[in-house]
Design a protein around this nucleic acid. Structure first.
Length: 415
RNA sequence: GCCGGGGUGGGGUAAAGGUUAUCCUGAAGCCCUGUGGAGGCUUUGACCCGAGUUCGAUUCUCGGUCCCGGCCCCA
């Protein structure tokens, strides 16, 4: 009788964890150099945190439960909402901007498939307190820097919801209506969109403008902004967007597609929206998503804007081939007569190098074979001769060369 | 929630409605009591679960479950 692991979860064995940690540390290294500090929030939160953000429909995708105090709780499905909640609870009086990053596991009750698990890891950042184009540019540049640090070539798509929202504002003030329009645009159901707009008796001119905007995309962002101006006139949001693109160029981010047709139904998104795609991931090819949003007021804080992104760490791992950092390893071989000497010597060397001793009661040759199978860099022989002479035999497993060294010499070699 | 393909030792596989389920690999040990990668030998260890059909099911049927891929969703 064996117990299996829960559906959509994974065990990460040492070999794989070494790779995951290598990438994780790479990402941490980058983001810390950009001045972001790590935040860890609870693995579970009150259910309401996520229904406030995403609506009741989200519950079907959550690992939610009632705790013993009859509280409605859920494992977190993402980290933006928890971080914003933490901001409202504890960081409202911090100096701006607040720069946070996280690397945590999240849980979603979904059907597993390639690049999609029920427990998965997100590496993300939130930049709180600036609605300037500088903030948008920094966040996008940071995301791209991290992705390329992981050795991945991402395909960056940048959208801006403010133009569409400006047009929608001329049609309706009801969020139900604008949400529906956004949904049609997002799903590219243009016939349904036209039918719907017709039912709302939207003017042909406005419908035409909407179509012009949602089909507006291209590699030349400045040209796209110019075309948008031709449709909607000089919106301040377009100036800001243009500034963001100018700044991005200074960051070295020039290869992207600007798409004004990117739509997000949820109305806390305020302006910029971006997504990064990568090859080799099947149906789940998005490795990063981000944008600017106003969630804080939803959670009882002020009217503070925030920009952030999340990187799908597991998806990154699927396609990245960064080598694991492997530490130098010594297998220390002893005879039954010198076992205690070996353990003492191992203890003196371990501050400097990783040392494995025999715990299988193996004979000399078998210990040698063990060193070979674990891929040890060196074998250190601690036998009677070595103990007598005080010179230990160190064998390089690659070259096969063997030298006699005192313990002090060994320590200086590996420190 | 829906669709398709799968599930045989730790990993990879073969076969057959019927006696002891094949091979490779791994692991442990021996050949070999102080020098690794080769070889020989030994040991270890499997039919996803349940129901049905059958004298007999790991094999056929159904259901479940898990895995893989896709749809939906993607906050």
């Amino acid at each position: 009788m064996t117990v299996s692991k829960p559906r959509g979860t994974r065990d990460f064995l040492p070999e794989e964890m070494a790779k995951r940690r290598a990438v994780e540390f790479k990402l941490r290294e980058v983001i810390q150099k950009w001045g972001y500090g790590e935040i860890v929030t609870p693995t579970f939160e009150e259910l309401e945190l996520f229904t406030l953000k995403s609506g009741q429909g989200i519950i079907g995708e959550l690992y939610n439960f009632t705790d013993k105090g009859d509280r409605e709780m859920t494992l977190r499905p993402e980290l933006t909402a928890p971080v914003m909640r933490a901001y409202v609870n504890e960081m409202q009086s911090f100096s701006r901007p607040i720069k946070l990053f996280y690397f945590e596991n999240c849980f979603r009750y979904e059907r597993p498939q390639k690049g999609r698990y029920r427990e998965f890891w997100q590496f993300g950042a939130e930049l709180i307190g600036s609605n300037k184009p500088e903030a948008d540019a920094e966040v996008i540049a940071l995301a791209m820097t991290m992705i390329s640090a992981a050795g991945i070539k991402g395909d960056l798509n940048i959208g801006n919801l403010s133009v569409l929202r400006y047009l929608l504002a001329q049609i309706t003030t009801e969020s139900v209506v604008s949400d529906q329009i956004m949904r049609y645009i997002d799903k590219k159901e243009y016939e349904n969109l036209d039918t719907y707009l017709g039912e709302l008796s939207v003017s042909a001119d406005l419908i035409d403008k909407i179509h012009k905007i949602i089909s507006l995309s291209g590699k030349d962002g400045f040209a796209a902004v110019k075309s948008a101006r031709d449709v909607v006139g000089d919106l301040p949001e377009l100036d800001s967007f243009e500034k963001t693109l100018t700044l991005l160029a200074s960051y070295g981010v020039t290869d992207y597609t600007v798409n004004f047709g990117v739509a997000r139904g949820l109305d806390y998104y305020t302006g910029i929206v971006f997504e990064v795609y990568a090859e080799g991931l099947g149906a789940q090819k998005q490795i990063c998503g981000g944008g600017s949003y106003k969630l804080i007021s939803l959670f009882g804080g002020g009217d503070v804007v925030s920009t952030g992104f999340g990187i799908g760490f597991d998806r990154i791992m699927e396609i990245c081939d960064l080598p694991a950092n492997k530490a130098e390893t010594i297998v220390l071989i002893t005879k039954p007569e010198t076992q205690t000497n070996g353990i003492e010597i191992a203890g003196k060397l371990r501050p400097y190098v990783s040392v494995l001793t025999d715990i299988m009661g193996r004979n000399f040759k078998a210990q040698m074979e063990y060193a070979n199978t674990v891929g040890a860099d060196y074998v250190l022989i601690v036998g009677e001769k070595e103990i007598e002479s005080g010179l230990l035999s160190l064998k390089d497993m690659k070259s096969g060369e063997q030298v006699s060294l005192s313990l002090e010499e060994l320590i200086s070699k590996f420190s």
